[in-house]
């Protein structure tokens, strides 16, 4: 069993004026090279968990560790460099007044990666190409792109510092159905090519099944089931997981077999 790269131990997060904790004693461990899906419905605590793992929010109790070290003992620049994130809606995650190149180059500038301006520009061109955009798209602005392309820009920004872990918060649910598949394929391809470890938060088990080897099912701030995706999806133990699986709208099965 490899050492987890990112882990949470007994994470609890309470918010003022809420009777129930948003997160209630959650253990999570992300091992290098094993993509993990976090599944649940609204109010399950998925996004709260993601924010804790991302170090933009602190747990009320419990601890997040990066490569075995508690987060407050890790150099922030090192952590940010290694752990990056893609948000749900690229319409709000990209500053409308910045060019694509400066958006994608932001982590490089802020984390002082790259020897000089030219080196950073080269890296920006490289990641834009990696997500299927053209280097010259860097001169344009987010509103000139479609939803799917904008999400590619957000992915390029996350990839720029060459992180080991990529957190993704519902990365396709704000996109049109026909574009979703392209973004899923892109993520899956990047995971393979760059050896990324993906932590995918989604309400959609089907998408998690496409991208993650392991899955964690959450409900009301707790983990109700976890394990290899194939096991959880085919032999769910928890009652709620079963309900969740049964609720997914399906095309007629004989049609799928024909394909």
């Amino acid at each position: 069993m490899t050492e987890p790269i990112l882990s949470g131990h007994q994470l609890t997060r309470r918010f003022p004026r809420r009777s129930h904790p948003a997160l209630d004693g959650v253990d999570i461990s992300v091992r290098p090279g094993v993509s993990l899906g976090i599944v649940g419905e609204s109010g399950a605590g998925k996004s709260t968990l993601l924010r804790l793992l991302l170090g933009v929010d602190r747990p009320s109790s419990g601890e997040v560790r990066f490569a075995g070290q508690p987060l407050d003992r890790v150099r922030p620049r090192e952590f940010r460099r290694q752990v990056q994130v893609v948000f749900q809606d690229p319409r709000s995650s990209l500053n409308p007044r910045m060019s694509v190149a400066s958006i994608v180059g932001e982590p490089l500038r802020s984390l002082r990666i790259g020897a000089d301006r030219a080196a950073r520009a080269e890296r920006v061109a490289e990641v834009l190409t990696a997500v299927g955009l053209r280097p010259q798209d860097g001169r344009r602005y987010p509103h000139e792109f479609s939803g799917g392309q904008r999400q590619r820009i957000a992915i390029a920004r996350a990839l720029a510092p060459a992180p080991r872990v990529l957190l993704a918060d519902e990365p396709v649910s704000a996109l049109d159905v026909s574009v979703r598949l392209q973004v899923i394929d892109l993520l899956s391809d990047l995971v393979d090519r760059l050896g990324l470890t993906l932590v995918l938060v989604s309400h959609d088990l089907a998408i998690v099944s496409q991208l993650c080897q392991e899955v964690l099912v959450m409900r009301h701030g707790r983990v109700v089931e976890r394990g290899p995706t194939a096991d959880v999806l085919t032999r769910p133990v928890d009652e709620y997981t079963r309900t969740l699986l049964a609720a997914i709208p399906q095309l007629p099965t004989d049609l799928l077999e024909e394909q």
């Binding site: 933009v56 990056q84 948000f87």
Partner: peptide, 17 residues
């Protein structure tokens, strides 16, 4: 409250910047 500010934080951008 916009995600791009959160994204900037996760890029290591300091508050003044």
């Amino acid at each position: 409250t916009q995600d791009y500010v959160l994204a900037a934080r996760t890029c290591g951008t300091s508050t003044p910047v």
